[in-house]
């Protein structure tokens, strides 16, 4: 589904102010997988995501989505950004925000509207379509952003610290929403986070990145019983063990075997 080979990215083109964000990163994600990428802050996670989305051209290496080399944003790829207040358009109603990307899909107005309503319903926001983003809470705005991605029916959904700007309770609700949504729509999800608990709770697999320049430090399979549950899963011995391990890896400490 997604293959990354020797990805390297340097900002500022080799001058004295150059920033080496990613170094020789290799990664592959299987169809239908939910991969969480964790790493220390400022390690180049967002650069990685923007490279996959074709928003920036990496200085080296190759990225393939569905076997196609990424040159611009691939078809059937949707992004959910952390900062919903700046990625939802304040001048459009919620429904128009969700329906906007569908203009690329040769759908007429009626079908776009139906698809938007359906997507809003699946994130628990049916009836909010006529509102404007500023009339919704932060958590609800992020649900709208997720609905916008869902309506697009992507095969690959990228999420860039999607729950970084909401409170703890909302965060848990949104984590469960992602798990639920993923069960309904068959798609691959790459979720970037700096929250270790979150990566283990949501992911099928957790990839740990090093400090910048980022490369893969560890690639761990998460075998926790499903469906996951905020209380039970988090007290499961495997969860506790795994999150400690990821925590040590992120902090760059040796892992106890």
């Amino acid at each position: 589904m997604l293959e990354i080979e020797n990805l390297t990215h340097i900002y500022g083109g080799g001058g004295p102010s150059a920033h080496h964000a990613i170094d020789q990163l290799n990664l592959s994600v299987a169809e239908g997988e939910l991969l969480c990428i964790v790493g220390p802050s400022g390690c180049g996670k967002s650069t990685l995501l923007r490279s996959i989305a074709g928003l920036i051209t990496p200085t080296g290496g190759r990225i393939k989505v569905d076997g196609e080399l990424v040159r611009q944003t691939p078809d059937n790829l949707a992004v959910v950004f952390q900062d919903y207040s700046r990625s939802l358009f304040p001048w459009m109603s919620v429904a128009d925000n969700v329906a906007l990307p569908l203009r690329r899909k040769n759908m007429d107005k009626k079908r776009r509207r139906e698809a938007a309503a359906e997507a809003l319903e699946s994130v628990g926001l049916s009836g909010a379509g006529r509102k404007y983003p500023f009339q919704l809470s932060g958590g609800m705005q992020q649900r709208v952003a997720i609905a916008r991605a869902l309506a697009y029916r992507p095969t690959l959904m990228l999420m860039d610290e999607p729950f970084g700007s909401v409170d703890a309770q909302t965060r848990e609700d949104l984590e469960d929403l992602v798990l639920k949504v993923r069960g309904h729509h068959k798609m691959t999800i790459v979720l970037i986070t700096h929250d270790i608990d979150e990566s283990v709770y949501v992911g099928d697999r957790v990839v740990v990145l090093s400090k910048a320049p980022a490369h893969v430090v560890a690639d761990l399979q998460v075998d926790l019983p499903s469906p996951r549950d905020q209380i039970n899963t988090r007290e499961h011995p495997d969860f506790v063990h795994l999150r400690a391990e990821v925590g040590r890896l992120v902090r760059g400490q040796p892992v106890a075997h």
Partner: peptide, 19 residues
């Protein structure tokens, strides 16, 4: 980020300018 969102959803240049 508005512009990046538009690009990530592959809106055409015309649509990004207009919308």
């Amino acid at each position: 980020l508005y512009l990046e969102t538009g690009r990530a959803f592959r809106l055409s240049r015309r649509e990004r300018v207009l919308r």
